[in-house]
Amino acid sequence: MDGRIINHDVRIPSHIVGAYSGHRQEVCGLKWSPSGQQLASGGTDNLLHIWDRRSMASVNGPTHYLHRLEDHAAAVKSIAWCPFQANLLASGSDDGIKFWNTRTGACLNSVDTGSEVCSLLWNNNERELLSSHGSPHNQLTLWKYPSMVKMVELTGHSSRVLFMAQSPDGCTVASAAGNDALRFWNVFGPVATAARAAPPFEPFAHRILIR
């Protein structure tokens, strides 16, 4: 809530090992890069910060970000590092999806999604990006990267799709909505990839309601 990011090392008793300070409001998105060398943070101040792990300071010490990215017009809630291209980051907000070169800080592309972007997930096997959304459709949208051609929309949730996670084998995506519903989608697996080549594509989904 205070805009600070605290880094913990859970392997040691004195687990608070450092901090980053730079956001002016609540931090609502965090994601380490695959290399573990950079941290991306998004806030309700509409800012996206890129931090170098080596710049982490003591809890009360000064810190300095690599980049302060100010292009978003709403809170930056969703962040996803690209698994197949170094220094490529996707971020989502109410104003759509943006792509960044985290080495230079340049905005590479911006896509108007037409609704709030709640979560982003890269396909580990193909050059695809999955986004989850709020109203009016509460859908998941699969995009082809880098053209950002919309491949398919996955519907079935009746509330904002707040979070997505990919299975260890990279084939199944679990989506969680604000009404406690979970859905499991066969959207990234070999069967789904083959089906997209011969539309219409109908992703298989299970639905679970948690109470």
Rank of each mutant, 00 (worst) to 15 (best):
D112E: 13
L69H: 04
G92H: 09
A74R: 11
F184H: 08
V27F: 04
P168G: 10
L140P: 02
Q85A: 15
A174Q: 14
G36T: 03
A177M: 07
R211F: 12
N46S: 10
E70K: 10
P146R: 02
P146G: 03
G189I: 07
R11A: 14
L142V: 01
T113N: 08
G96T: 02
L69P: 06
T155H: 07
S21M: 00
E126K: 05
P190E: 07
S115F: 04
V149P: 00
G156L: 07
H157T: 07
R160A: 14
N87F: 14
L130P: 04
C28Y: 01
H64Y: 06
F99Y: 05
Q166W: 14
C171L: 09
R211S: 13
H8G: 02
E126N: 07
S78Y: 05
H206S: 12
A74P: 04
K144N: 05
S135A: 04
G189D: 13
F163H: 15
V191S: 09
W122T: 02
L69W: 01
C82N: 15
A181T: 13
N101Y: 08
R160Y: 14
R207M: 10
G156S: 03
Q25D: 13
R24F: 05
K98G: 06
L129E: 05
N101D: 15
D2C: 11
Q166S: 15
E202Q: 12
N123F: 02
S132I: 01
I50S: 08
V10D: 06
A74I: 03
I12M: 14
R196L: 12
N186A: 12
D95C: 05
P13W: 09
D169N: 15
Q166E: 15
R54Y: 00
V117W: 03
K31S: 13
S35Y: 08
V187R: 10
A194W: 01
L108F: 13
L121F: 09
S131G: 03
R183D: 04
W51K: 00
G114Y: 10
P34V: 11
D71S: 11
F188L: 11
S132W: 05
A165Y: 07
T104H: 08
G43D: 03
C107P: 02
S14H: 14
R127Q: 07
W32E: 06
A90T: 09
D95A: 03
E153A: 14
C82D: 15
A181C: 14
S41W: 01
H23F: 00
L39K: 01
S131Y: 01
I16K: 08
H15T: 08
A80T: 15
S58C: 00
P83E: 13
V17L: 09
H72R: 02
L47M: 11
I208E: 13
C171T: 12
A165H: 14
L69M: 09
N7G: 11
Q37F: 11
Q38G: 06
Y20P: 00
R160W: 14
G189E: 05
H206I: 13
A194Y: 01
S91C: 06
K98V: 08
P199Y: 04
P83A: 13
D45Q: 04
G18V: 00
I6N: 00
Y145Q: 02
E116M: 10
D45E: 11
K98T: 08
N87M: 15
L88P: 07
W185S: 04
